[in-house]
Design a protein around this nucleic acid. Structure first.
Lengths: 263, 263
DNA sequence: CGCTTAATTGAGGAGTATCAAGGCCAGTGG
DNA sequence: CCACTGGCCTTGATACTCCTCAATTAAGCG
């Protein structure tokens, strides 16, 4: 089953991807971003590494984490196609955290200098870049609330619904997917122990809310999950406009008006 | 210290402003940001309010919080002089959270449009703005770790040490200060109940680590606090270069190295 | 096909939350 | 000036969630 879903990953649909009309796309300096492949288990970058580029996931899933002073790992996020990685290095020029691939992955490489140029010279680029950062801030704050104020079952429900939404956005089934991360990763991300994660998944399985077998998950009762999550259904997180399109080209102002980029 | 290491430009780098040769100073428009006073208990902005300006605290302390779907308040941060507020509105154009003054406060008002102009036309402004956002991201991630993986006493210790550091930075005593927020605010921020906060403060008091009477706090045993926090002493958070100086002028300065002077 | 890692499940306990009662303090009005 | 009042803080008793430890089973991987 894992094999079959890997096949599905071969060509990730990117949301909001329009057929590249020449009007929308002005070829930025090099026509395409370079790419980088990371095999499962390999690191995209390590802690303390110098910051120089941003990454945009093209294929695969990666986990970001930080290692605290006591040597423990703490997952801060899972990134899928379209997500930007590496923002944590902007502040100091060094990555405080690390990123490893949970599955064979491929990322676009965006030299930060180029992002800065783009952002400096194109109003649209500027806005887009700002929005990427700003969205990350909002996402973090929501996560803080989850970690600080929610019960274990709420966190699990939110986690599953979030995955569902994101998969759905990428064109996959919102109700059936394969977890690429371990229970420990999930627990670390949610501020729980792996046994707790396992127990709660089992409980949801018994309740008929979901179906679990190993890493394969099926969401059976969405209303129940929403109820558990404690979130009102309209609190769906706003989607961020992707920063690069399917071919690794920087997205240039689709908006009418003067969003045009120069180089 | 940081202020002195920065040259300042009276007022906004203007459109057309070239990658500022740091020394040529052209004061183009009104010399200072506008200000706004907020009395204790009043809101700087409310949830859902349209985003249009950023604020930089000049005097006082404010608390930022979000109200979750179930109506509960969750404090996401306390802001003191030099801190930037309002970043949460950039992503969507609406503030998802609220901010109220815990004490009579005064803030500088930075119209976002002006920040964008500054950022678009001045390389330094751009870098500074990016760094402000990026630092907020890093801060959030550290907070996530605290909320997800640390025990109550660790959180309290870190909270106190953080306050100490910040007060110290502003020229106040690092070992003696007055908490402007309630136990409930602290608890909400740290993911604890107010009774737990109270109990732990009392315990630290009994241990001789700190001295508490109501909102007055004295830190007596820093090594013990560091030990409790579980943080290595060199993991002090990098300081962000302030975006405006004491007079409300946008800081225009070449940086020596990066903004994170450690140790 | 054995080996290693991941996941499940149980029992017991630590750590916080919850509920409840009383005390402290600052602001308010007599 | 003092009593009043309401919010804030402290402290105790108890409940409950989640963690810890441990044993077993299942699943990847060479």
């Amino acid at each position: 089953m894992i094999a079959s879903s890997s096949l599905r990953l071969a060509y990730p649909p990117i949301p909001g991807d329009q057929p590249a009309s020449p009007l929308n796309v002005v070829p930025p300096v090099p026509p395409k971003c370079s790419r980088r492949c990371i095999r499962r288990g390999e690191a995209l970058y390590g802690a303390g590494e110098a910051f120089g580029v941003l990454y945009v996931v093209r294929i695969g899933i990666l986990k970001s984490f930080m290692v605290s002073d006591d040597g423990l790992m703490h997952v801060t996020g899972f990134s899928m196609a379209g997500d930007v990685i590496g923002l944590d290095g902007i502040a100091t020029g060094q990555h405080p955290g690390e990123v490893v691939a949970l599955d064979d992955a491929e990322v676009f490489v965006l030299p930060w200098a180029r992002c800065e140029q783009w952002s400096l010279h194109s109003e649209h680029g500027h806005r887009l870049m700002m929005r990427v950062l700003a969205h990350e801030i909002v996402r973090s704050k929501e996560l803080m609330i989850m970690l600080g104020a929610m019960h274990a079952d709420q966190r699990i429900a939110i986690f599953l619904l979030d995955l569902s939404r994101r998969y759905s956005h990428l064109g996959y089934s919102p109700s059936q997917f394969v977890l690429r991360m371990t229970r420990q990763d999930i627990g670390s991300y949610l501020g729980l122990k792996l046994e707790t994660v396992s127990r709660l998944l089992s409980r949801l399985h018994r309740d008929g809310t979901i179906q679990v077998r190993g890493k394969s998950i099926a969401l059976l009762d969405f209303p129940a999950l929403w109820r558990l999550s404690g979130l009102s259904s309209d609190s769906r997180r706003p989607t961020v406009t992707p920063i690069v399109d399917r071919d690794g080209e920087l997205v240039v102002a689709p908006e009418a008006g003067n969003g045009g980029a120069r180089r």
